[in-house]
Nucleic acid binder design. Structure first.
Length: 495
RNA sequence: GCGCCCAUAGCUCAACUGGAUAGAGCACCCGCCUUCUAAGCGGGCGGUUGCAGGUUCGAGUCCUGCUGGGCGCGCCA
């Protein structure tokens, strides 16, 4: 099945060919001026330029060469040489019937099926889902669904942040809280009572302490390296934190309507790191630098100026090298990202990996992608960072609560649901519903408002989160869209 | 300092990759509920596309230079 624009383009291309014109210029598309015609082709202008002819004259020749195919009448000419097409009633009817009978509503499939991994969501085990994860989750889920609908084989991967310095921080925080990790029963009791709420409260405190207290930071770095080396009880503590967090975050994702095929994380790539490091070594890519081990990814002549803390400006390679092993011997996030590519190539053989992550990490991904290509793990073109802007508060800064903390995802959804309930009551809708039905509708309206608002904004820029505007039942909003769908169903029912 | 991104109606955003008269929603003004969900519908008002040049038959779109804003620049992720 082909859509009308494609059918017109094909017919127009044939006409162009008979006149010896480049068929690339024959594309027919929906008209900018629906008052004049349904479809248009601007190619006569470009073709005239290439042929050294007058646009209007050439457009006339093209129009004259058209047969009445049953698809559309001969195009009319307007302006400097636009071709305007009006589709026949019969062609319209056939197309409408075809769409109605097609399970895919006329959407075409990709010419060649690809294997695609969409890496999105990316929750941090120690942080819990907050508004910052909203865009990654919503955009990533949508991209995954679109690719899948288009016929590609797609895996969504949550890629949990469960292997970095934050894990060492938490282990050290627990060590200090318990006065050491030697007392097994005491530790066991602590881990039994572990909750995501605890992690969320303890993590910022530990992170702040690490910034102030150098000794604490060094112990946390050592704990990170120890965990990654498989030490106990580090491993046990990590497992407890991981499991508690995973369970809670699965609930959050579920309430957003977000689901993954792979619930993997940074830690799952860890077993591949030693061999990957040996491989990088054997390829001569690993270099010692200031006690750390790095892979240089800048090409010849790629330099940038860089301002140091003391104000002096030096020239260095650009992009920065990828830090593979810290001076403490631990893996960094670039390390796990690289190892994850190795893992994905091994397990899914992807043609394309999309990273739906905050735009601010663009430089980081460029480093990782270059390193992966340099090591021969995957083609650079198979890796793409689908960056997006932040969700800001009314002050234009990344969203915070009034108290200055991050707003938890669950609380945000709760606020939207409360607003939805109020609007439903105002409109006296659902008064005859059971409590369960009413709550279900309120939840759906709330999620629709949030998702639609996010997706209707340009991905690359930040936007201001304004719940009142998003929850409005008037205008370009999720609730309005839901209302239209419900209304159409009502019409169909009573038709 | 260097790099990336952004700037369009009072506000939030489009503009199909260089085409015709730059479009929607909100807000504001006017008009529509005895029949499908008024959570709605129709109409009106609103523009030197940040500034200055350039390329082109044609520029919001491409190039150059400015101005203003966001973000990033090794041992956090």
């Amino acid at each position: 099945m082909t859509d009308l624009a494609s059918a017109l383009s094909a017919a127009n291309a044939a006409v162009f060919a008979t006149l010896g014109l480049d068929a690339r210029h024959a594309e027919v598309r929906r008209s900018d001026r629906p008052d004049l015609a349904e479809f248009q082709c601007n190619g006569a202008l470009a073709a005239a330029k290439a042929a050294g002819k007058k646009p209007l004259e050439l457009a006339g020749e093209i129009a004259a060469a058209w047969d009445n195919t049953g698809l559309a009448a001969k195009p009319t000419i307007a302006g400097p040489g636009f071709l305007n097409f009006t589709v026949s009633a019969n062609a319209l009817t056939l197309r409408a019937q075809a769409i109605a009978e097609d399970a895919r509503a006329g959407a075409s499939l990709v010419a060649r099926k690809r294997r695609v991994i969409v890496d999105y969501g990316g929750p941090n085990v120690a942080k819990g889902m907050h508004v910052g994860h909203l865009r990654a989750s919503i955009i990533g889920e949508s991209i995954k669904r679109v690719f899948r609908f288009r016929g590609d084989e797609v895996w969504g991967d949550a890629h949990f942040g469960d292997w970095g310095f934050q894990m060492g921080l938490m282990i050290t925080a627990i060590e200090d809280e318990l006065g050491g990790l030697a007392d097994a029963p005491k530790l066991d009791a602590r881990l039994q009572g572990l909750s995501l709420d605890y992690l969320e409260a303890a993590y910022p405190a530990a992170a702040a302490k690490a910034r102030e207290d150098v000794a604490f930071r060094d112990r946390a770095r050592k704990a990170t390296a120890a965990l990654q080396a498989g030490a106990e009880p580090h491993r046990t503590i990590w497992k407890a934190m991981h499991d508690v967090s995973m369970a809670a975050q699965k609930r959050d994702f579920a309430s957003l309507g977000v689901d993954f095929d792979l619930w993997l994380g940074e830690s799952d790539a860890d077993p591949l790191i030693p061999e990957m490091v040996r491989d990088l070594e054997s390829k001569g890519l690993l270099e010692e630098d200031q006690g750390a081990r790095i892979v240089r990814v800048a090409g010849p002549g790629e330099r940038k100026k860089k301002k140091l803390d003391d104000g002096t400006v030096i020239e260095v390679e650009s992009p920065d090298p990828l830090l593979v092993i810290s001076s403490e011997g631990s893996a960094m996030y670039g390390t796990t990202d690289l190892a994850t590519i190795v893992q994905r190539v091994r397990d899914q053989q992807p043609d394309l990996i999309l990273y739906v992550v905050d735009q601010r990490q663009a430089d980081h991904f460029e480093q990782v992608y270059r390193a992966a290509a340099k090591a021969g793990y995957i083609a650079r073109e198979a890796l793409e960072h689908t960056g997006f802007g932040t969700m800001n508060g009314s002050d234009g800064k990344p969203f915070k609560t009034r108290a200055g903390g991050v707003l938890k995802l669950g609380d945000l959804i709760g606020q939207a649901e409360e607003k939805a309930r109020a609007r439903l009551r105002e409109a006296e809708i659902g008064a005859d519903f059971t409590t369960e039905e009413f709550e279900d509708v309120a939840h759906k309206v709330a999620i629709a408002a949030i998702k639609f608002a996010d997706l209707s904004n340009f991905r690359g820029t930040s936007y201001v989160f304004d719940l009142d505007r998003f929850m409005s039942f008037e205008g370009k909003t999720g609730p309005y869209l839901l209302y239209q769908a419900v209304r159409i169903k009502s019409v169909m029912r009573t038709a």
